[in-house]
Design a protein around this nucleic acid. Sequence first.
DNA 1: TTATAATATTAGAACCATTCTAAATTTAAA
DNA 2: TTTAAATTTAGAATGGTTCTAATATTATAA
Lengths: 134, 134
Amino acid sequence: MEEKINMLIEKGVVPTTQRLIVFQHLEESKTHPTADDIYKALKRRYPIFSRATVYNTLFIFKEAGIIQELTLDKREIHYDPIPSPHHHFYCKVCKEILNIAISCPVAKKREINGHKVEDVQSTFYGVCKRCLKH
Amino acid sequence: MEEKINMLIEKGVVPTTQRLIVFQHLEESKTHPTADDIYKALKRRYPIFSRATVYNTLFIFKEAGIIQELTLDKREIHYDPIPSPHHHFYCKVCKEILNIAISCPVAKKREINGHKVEDVQSTFYGVCKRCLKH
DNA sequence: TTATAATATTAGAACCATTCTAAATTTAAA
DNA sequence: TTTAAATTTAGAATGGTTCTAATATTATAA
């Protein structure tokens, strides 16, 4: 807990109770949840939790570089607790999002054609290994 | 016009008047318009045009591989008249979407970690050359 | 500590891009 | 020409996200 509080402070984020809960939930989640996934999960345990708080917190975290916003789904935004850029695979069948560890020189560029690059998102769309079998 | 009609037929799309108008509009547009951009532009010239028709047509075109859907903007979907995969740059300041011609071996993969890849989207986010100057 | 200002949280309303619906129209097939 | 199928239309419904105004909490100053 101590370290989580310090981590938020280091990133310039006031460590409120709600923010610590959201942060811990993100860390523990192995998936790439949407804001509503997080809201529903936390609401069950902490009934006072508000939807707006989840949205605000995710916005704050993203701005602070603590998490990453994934705009790879046409319906809703997903969040990734790993802030460093990496590729993703989005399964059209089961809708799961998988991290892809792959070395890619293009994704490391900080400048391209004179444009300043701050973030990169690379997503593969298709059918995942598991769904291919069924 | 003749060739546009044949092109749609070839792709298995019934070439209705509305679809031809949408297709021509996409071809002429140098940008990556949203469904609503297209609807508003066409509504001005053809007041009977319906929003649902634009959405239906874009869906049909995407399924037929005539256009590409870009889910790089968190707010709305953009459409690219070039169906073959290529990188994009999204300017956070002016919100413009630019095509990036870059050779990328990773983006050519049809299989990764056992998953079947059907599409790839790679987007750079940052500040474009023009906005950097201002 | 106490008072005051600034920030965060809450519930629910508002927003808005997209999808759905049912009726009317157009196109294709018999 | 008749009939069936597909397309288009206007507007309502949906649903993820943002906004609002009131309340609660936290930080700062006296």
